[in-house]
Design a protein around this nucleic acid. Sequence first.
RNA 1: UCCUCGAUAGCUCAAUCGGUAGAGCAUGCGGCUGUUAACCGCAGGGUUGCAGGUUCGAGUCCUGCUCGAGGAGCCA
Length: 462
Amino acid sequence: MKRQRISDLLARPEAGGDVDIAGWVRTKRDSKEIVFLNVNDGSNLAGIQVVVPRDAACFEDARKLTTGASVAVSGRLVDSPGGKQRFEILASGLRIYGLADPATYPIQKKKITLEYLREVAHLRPRTNTFGAVFRVRNTAADAVHRFFQERGFVWIHTPIITSADAEGAGELFRVTVLDPASPPRMDDGRVDYREDFFGRETYLTVSGQLAVENFCSALGNVYTFGPTFRAENSNTTRHLAEFWMIEPEMAFADIHDDMDLAEEFLKYIIAVVLRDRAEDMSFLAERYDPELLPRLEHILASTFARITYTEAVEILERSGRPFQFPVRWGMDLQTEHERYLCEEHFMGPVIVTDYPMEIKAFYMKQNDDGKTVRAMDILFPGVGEIVGGSQREDDLEKLVSRMRALGMREETYWWYLDLRRYGTHPHCGFGLGFERLVQFLTGMSNIRDVIPFPRTPKNADF
RNA sequence: UCCUCGAUAGCUCAAUCGGUAGAGCAUGCGGCUGUUAACCGCAGGGUUGCAGGUUCGAGUCCUGCUCGAGGAGCCA
């Protein structure tokens, strides 16, 4: 069957011609004389109005339709006399694929909360809000690849199942095929994972970074963009057990190149979404967050402030603010500190660099002062930390001594350490949670509303 | 994991001091109109999250549990 996308029809310069569409009925308004349908095929926010006059052969069929039904419509694209749309379809033919019983169909026309829609997550993409969010998400994901591809970065598909714990970042989900009721055991009673599928303990990845560093050491500039898993018992609006992460890695580059890349990257994604998803963005701004578009435009227009951790601590100490967690050199910045820096002091994005070594991961390059590392976090107004990155330690001895200090087993990381043994080089990269980016782009306040089927503690429905 | 708040019709919410559980939307039926959150009329719809307790009487007070939301921590 031939089918035209509604967004393409609405983009035409003028009305006229026979058209065929198919989609789902959003609303119906009918009378004895005429039926008005709004049909949406997912290609845009507004859908298109279908008009079925009484003398049309399909009039009685049209009267049967209710919200949620699926139909194909053929007719003529005509100028709409009504005020709210440019074109509409004067129907001559109509095929019903499936009705939707209005007594039980959960998506009603008015006032449905986001919490309720999470309980019917399989149907929520049929709402205006989730249609808009997931079109924006798609555009952002495409822009991620375009950004890196245009700059010659090579996309590396790092493994989902891993045996190494990168930096101890969060709790791990175990991957096993052993019978949980009666696993094979060793003499001392511990589970014998030598009998397991991989012959050892394995987990879902918490980060593709260590793997992508390997490819950086051969292909130059690389990135990963894929799913990541954390078994943390985090119940917040910004955490998921399964989320997508973007992790670029650049060879022969330092922390300043890293900051430049991250700033350019964020502005690129924002600009593409504002340009290509204007209708959806306007809807989200109107419905949820009037400051959304100005805030994004502000990011585009600003140069990210760049300060060291030590300077950040001085600013916070001088602020005179009675923070719940008093500021002290050596502690990690709390949410309230990050918000003060970018929302009140700098009034815009801030990049904080050179954090104390003790609060950062083992692989970050140590500074000459012996106290700090070449880390960089980008803080955004409203969301806090959106990017975390660093220059990596490329000196074998320093890396090994740091790992020993943290009690890490060198044998586990022999392949990672080989990068420093053979042709080591300065390199850097950063990590970015894709859903947090989509949250910032759409203004959605809960991260569970920017991923199709959220996985959170006690919830893996659908 | 911690703190706070919440759970009443399909959905969103009311219910005064502890005293007969209501409305809007949705649904059904009817009407009307180039309508667009359509409109007008009528009707049906409830074990007030679960389990106990106090009381003549509990949606309301008490205890425990479950689930949800917001904040914090952890982090991306």
